[in-house]
Design a protein around this nucleic acid. Structure first.
Lengths: 253, 253
DNA sequence: AGAAACTGTATCCGACGGACACTGATTTGT
DNA sequence: ACAAATCAGTGTCCGTCGGATACAGTTTCT
């Protein structure tokens, strides 16, 4: 079939991911029935990643959890990268339904979307690591950006600006959740990540406050103020403010 | 010395990084003279990463490039993670001097800072991968955030807000450069990364435009408009707009 | 009754980060 | 002057990783 050749030429090495994520490979009629399934493998790998991070996911480990040999997995998945791609798209899940009250209001729709995205990242912290860089997106992931773009469709932004706006928002969500996330893998999980972070920073700054005066002052001021946890909200609102101003400036004559 | 114990207790496993990045380990008096230096090792590793990405950096490779054995590197560096930390701080380099015309103008100072940061990421694309997540920051990296905070010191933002603002900006720079960067490692480097990206996306969307109408429309609109490359600027200006509005709102009675 | 197609396994490979024991060079204290 | 202490670099070994390949057993089609 010509389509396969075309796919292979356009997608290059990532044709496997495309087929796995998008193409519904039909069960062959001959041969023994498979004892595993893509779904089971993916779920198992996700469970491992949820507990021990992406680094804990190895073919051996996944197969062992399923009481199979490592190599049996390669009957279902071309390689580990493709498995991770599957994990990512599954972990993202169906894009969230647009909130009821958000109809016609791009700002609350986008804010809602961003918070749902942050929630997904918090559910599966390894997503930050796994869904990084440009890769082949699965249906779910593409559905997420579809939702965000749909919220911006009637704002007067052109296509490129809409895409840029989504990039800004996701970039912020990623940056924020990254700080809070991977610290959870540290030894004791007892303290809040923010506290650990500032504790380490403060320790570094001891005796060096003259070299980093602004940092020292900012940390001291932040320590006085009430508990910081509004980083996500603060940045998000600033971005939305900036978008709103731009949109308004455009709409006006 | 009590300080060492304290360091070890606070920094945990990352004490090695701290000592390497911050503490100036004095040369021991006894024993043969070292044939290598931290600096030479780091530079070599960086050169390898610049050419082949972070994945190409292995102890074997670095040592081979220096005509030494793999294990000899462990006389200078506790482990690979610490070496990468050194690479990161060296690659970041001295924080850029504040631009001349930017004195007293936080907006242009911060914009300038952000573009310098993007330039650093473009110089060493592996920084995106290596300087990810919360880790021990070196003097240079800390100097960068010091500069950014210094630009925001007189804005009326409190310490937490200043930190949040820096996080938003860096998050955006990272998000933008990430898209443009790791595609360069792809096969032919001939096309622009943006073009490759949209080509793949368009291929995926063929026959599925009904499922992703907003995306299809946005991509079509973006293709009409002039070449996209303003993603960095667009998002950055939106963020700065949002910050400016917030600052103004605060300053007003 | 084959032959073809398929699943799962066993074995092997190269590369990785790192532990450990060792040789040889250099400095210090006696 | 000499021995003990200290340190640089090497060689060897281990466990783990992703993956290629060859093969045995199973199911279906002709």
């Amino acid at each position: 079939m010509a389509g396969d050749d075309e796919k292979r030429s356009v997608f290059g090495e990532q044709a496997g991911s495309v087929e796995l994520l998008w193409g519904g490979r039909e069960r062959p009629s001959r041969g023994p029935k498979p004892g595993l399934s893509l779904e089971r493998i993916t779920r198992t790998a996700m469970a491992i990643a949820d507990l021990g991070g992406l680094g804990a996911v190895s073919m051996q480990r996944v197969a062992g959890e399923l009481d199979f040999t490592k190599m049996s997995l390669y009957r279902y998945v071309p390689g580990k990268t493709e498995l991770v791609a599957l994990m990512v798209d599954t972990a993202m899940g169906e894009p969230p339904a647009p909130a009821d009250g958000a109809a016609g209001n791009w700002r609350t729709a986008l804010r809602d979307w961003a918070e749902q995205l942050a929630a997904a990242f918090r559910r599966h912290p390894w997503l930050l690591e796994a869904a990084t860089g440009p890769r082949i997106m699965g249906p779910n992931e593409l559905g997420w950006t579809e939702r965000a773009l749909a919220a911006l469709a009637d704002t007067g932004l052109n296509g490129g600006e809409q895409l840029d706006a989504v990039v800004v928002v996701t970039g912020h969500i990623r940056a924020i959740t990254q700080v809070s996330a991977s610290l959870g893998l540290g030894s004791t999980q007892a303290k809040e990540p923010e506290q650990v972070m500032s504790a380490l920073l403060n320790e570094l700054l001891v005796g060096r406050s003259d070299r980093f005066p602004a940092l020292t002052a900012a940390l001291a001021s932040a320590a006085e103020t009430d508990s910081r946890d509004q980083s996500l909200e603060f940045g998000l609102e600033r971005i939305l403010d900036g978008l709103e101003a731009y949109i308004a400036r455009r709409a006006a004559p």
